[in-house]
Design a protein around this nucleic acid. Structure first.
Length: 472
RNA sequence: GGCGACGUAGCCAAGUGGUAAGGCCGGGCUCUGCAAAAGCCUUAUUCGCCGGUUCGAUUCCGGCCGUCGCCUCCA
């Protein structure tokens, strides 16, 4: 078994992975705030933890994994103090905040399924851990790490010696005023642990607390849920790079401030998906593409997973329709090649095993999926290795990559069910003309089919219809 | 202003101090009535620019140019 090495944001270095308890891994993945659909950039950040988890399983570890839902919104901006995204979405759609968060949480889970992302051991909902969050806040208060202002209870970051170490923050240089400004905040990095409900309005989501009616600060929930589900120290915590300077920095301050123990041994952060020319994709930017949009365009969700795996998780991935198209073409071609493997050819088993070890080694080197994919292509096209050893290796590596390499259901040729009868009729006529060697008529009918949006592909014993739009 | 990342063929993208993975697209050929599919072959003397270290740098160091991210909820 190769040694698993992971790039740890704490040290900014690749480190050999050693779990707290031999053979067991506790990992936590920062989940979405459920006030809208996830976009494909968000989803990228759930693919690499999935890859990591499956690699750990393949290496023989047992894995306890939590993904949370932030189902209580937080501040939208400085101008909207007291308002939050979930409640805002609720107002816009005429639903309750609870309905909104449940709806988008379910939509998110459907996206995960479409992308072959395994569900975690548990999904946790922030609103189901309010007592734990209050208890954590009490702990912090007892240690003198918090102070109360008219609008909420704040964390006193100056009293936590290592504050900002994860992000290597230069606190003095932080953009003055860019952070949420609150009257009376003692230090610009101080953040809300509990916000009071505005006196003049009734929030849908608010709870009683020793400090007054209100709702928890954003950072508190993750820490409280980790403590409740996984313990005070965990192995791995994953999220997007944008969480390093604020969210994860604050989580560490809360957790280690409260317990005095190391919170997380390995912090892993995924880099953004970016749009060519157009900067990052963001929920707030309004320029986001959902998985459903891609499906509507005729793309396979797994082709997007394939695309995500062609880039290293710690690097930007430039997304464009062209890139996705080429990924889907490659992905379908790879599956067709695999379908045609001759399982009765057994030669080259040793070389195949060596290739498998190399793939595993690539993945163990900080999840180098692009390299492993390259090795898959080389294996599949290697003429000295028979179909059987190839299949054996591909099945095992696909348990980690989850590309459904042996499932041909999403290939265009297997999706002919919804072709209109008229078109099918034309195709049949063409086939008959062709059998009668009336090629002029056959070509005419081919053109007619093209106009109807379908291409005909002949095989020896019959033909297939492929919709031109979805044959990308 | 502070912190940080990136710049490899038309596109996506690995990579190493010793002479550039893989995929897509393109081109050529085979096969096919045509077409598609499939198969075979081919596609960067070069890794943003300029210096330095070195026998040797795309890979290390310095400078410059360019692009981008975070510092406010965002993956």
């Amino acid at each position: 078994m190769p040694q698993l090495t992971l790039f740890n944001t704490l040290s900014r270095n690749k480190e050999a992975f050693v779990p707290l308890t031999p053979g067991q891994v506790k990992m936590y993945t920062c989940g979405p705030t459920v006030y809208n659909y996830a976009h494909i950039g968000n989803l990228r950040s759930y693919i690499f933890p999935d890859l990591l988890k499956k690699l750990l399983l393949q290496l023989g570890y047992s894995v306890q994994h939590i993904i949370n839902f932030t189902d209580v919104g937080h501040l939208t901006s400085d101008e909207d103090l007291g308002d939050d995204k979930v409640e805002k979405a609720a107002a816009r759609l005429g639903k309750s905040a609870w309905e909104i968060s449940r709806f988008y949480a379910e939509a998110f889970q459907q996206d995960l399924q479409a992308l072959n992302i395994a569900f975690p051991t548990r999904f946790t909902y922030a609103t189901e851990y309010i007592p734990q969050q209050i208890a954590l806040l009490e702990q912090l208060e007892a240690k003198g790490l918090s102070y109360t202002l008219p609008d909420g209870v704040y964390y006193d970051t100056a009293s936590f010696a290592d504050y900002g170490q994860l992000a290597r923050l230069d606190i003095e240089g932080l953009n003055e005023g860019a952070r949420v400004s609150a009257e009376g905040k003692q230090h610009k990095t101080d953040f809300a642990l509990w916000k009071f409900s505005p006196a003049d309005q009734q929030r849908q989501m608010e709870w009683e607390s020793p400090w007054g009616k209100g709702f928890p600060g954003w950072h508190l929930e993750c820490t409280a849920m980790i403590f409740a589900e996984l313990g005070q120290t965990i192995d791995i915590h994953t999220g997007g790079t944008d969480h390093i300077p604020v969210h994860h920095t604050n989580e560490i301050a809360q957790a280690e401030g409260a317990t005095g123990q190391k919170f997380v041994n390995y912090w892993l952060h995924g880099e953004f998906l970016v749009l060519d020319q157009e900067r990052r994709m963001g929920k707030s930017e309004g320029n986001f593409i959902t998985l459903q949009t891609l499906l509507d365009q005729g793309f396979s969700a797994r082709a997007y997973r394939y695309l995500a795996l062609t880039a290293h998780y710690r690097h930007f991935l430039t997304f464009s329709e062209e890139a996705l198209k080429s990924a889907q073409t490659a992905y379908f071609k790879l599956k067709r090649l695999i379908q045609k493997l001759d399982a009765s050819a057994h030669q080259g088993a040793e070389a195949a095993e060596a290739a498998y070890e190399q793939m595993l080694a690539a993945l163990c080197d900080d999840l180098n999926a692009p390299k492993a994919l390259g090795q898959i292509w080389e294996l599949v096209q290697n003429k000295d290795i028979g179909g059987q050893p190839k299949i054996s290796v591909l099945q095992r590596i696909d348990q980690v990559l989850s590309l459904a390499l042996f499932d041909s259901a999403d290939l265009p040729e297997n999706n002919a069910a919804e072709i209109p009868p008229v078109v099918q009729d034309l195709a049949r006529q063409r086939w008959e003309a062709k059998q009668a060697r009336d090629f002029a008529r056959a070509d005419q009918l081919r053109e007619a089919l093209a106009e109807a949006g379908y291409a005909v592909k002949d095989a020896k014993a019959g033909y297939e219809l492929v919709a031109l739009d979805s044959s990308m």
